[in-house]
Computed example of a mutant assay.
Amino acid sequence: MSTSTSPLPRPTAEAPPGAPAPAPSRPYDGSGPFPVEGPPPPARVGADRLYIALTGTIVVLPFVALGLACWLLWGRLIGPTDVVLALVLYLLTGLGVTVGFHRGLTHGGYTAVRPLRTALAVAGSMSFQGDVIGWVATHRRHHAFTDRPGDPHSPYRYGTHLRGQLRGLVHSHVGWLFRNDPTSPERYAPDLLADPDLRAVARAFPALCLLTLALPFGLGWAIGGTWVHALTALLWAGLVRIALLHHVTWSVNSLCHLIGERPFRTRRHDRATNLWPLALLSFGESWHNLHHADPTSARHGVDRGQIDPSAAVIRLFERLGWVYDVRWPTPDRIAARRT
Rank of each mutant, 00 (worst) to 15 (best):
T146I: 01
V84K: 04
V45S: 13
V302M: 04
W221L: 15
G260T: 11
W176I: 02
F63L: 13
A23T: 15
F317I: 01
W287L: 04
D294M: 15
A336I: 03
A13F: 00
T232R: 14
G220D: 06
P27W: 01
V84D: 07
T232M: 11
M1W: 13
A207P: 08
Q165D: 07
L89M: 12
P115G: 01
L281G: 00
R187N: 03
L213D: 03
H153M: 05
D270F: 10
A293Y: 03
D82G: 03
G32Y: 00
W71K: 07
Y90E: 08
G225E: 10
D48P: 02
A243Q: 14
P11E: 09
D270T: 01
L258F: 03
A119L: 13
D29L: 02
R299Y: 00
S282G: 09
W135F: 12
L169R: 05
D82W: 09
V174E: 00
H257L: 12
A194I: 10
A65D: 05
R304E: 13
R141V: 05
R141E: 04
L280A: 15
L198R: 03
P40M: 11
T138C: 11
R10Q: 13
A237P: 03
G56D: 03
F283C: 13
A43L: 14
W176M: 01
E285Q: 08
L87W: 15
N253H: 09
R103A: 08
A336R: 13
F34Y: 15
N180Y: 12
L213F: 14
G46Y: 03
P11A: 05
L177M: 14
A123C: 11
T330F: 05
H173A: 02
A13W: 03
R167P: 00
I52H: 12
A233G: 06
V64K: 05
G225D: 12
G321N: 09
P9T: 04
L278T: 10
H246A: 04
L169S: 11
H173E: 14
G260D: 08
G109S: 14
L198T: 00
W236C: 09
H269T: 05
P263H: 08
T160D: 13
A123T: 01
L255P: 01
N274E: 11
A19M: 02
H107W: 02
S31P: 00
V99P: 02
F264N: 09
V201D: 07
D195C: 13
P331N: 08
G260K: 01
A243G: 14
P39R: 12
V84M: 12
H139S: 02
A23N: 13
P11H: 06
L68H: 11
T3G: 15
V88L: 15
D147G: 00
H143E: 10
Q306G: 03
G46T: 12
T249C: 09
R241T: 03
L73D: 09
C256L: 11
H142F: 05
G30R: 02
S127E: 07
V97C: 06
R26H: 12
H247V: 07
S127Y: 00
T146R: 02
A298H: 02
P80W: 13
V84C: 08
A194S: 14
V174R: 00
P152M: 09
A189C: 11
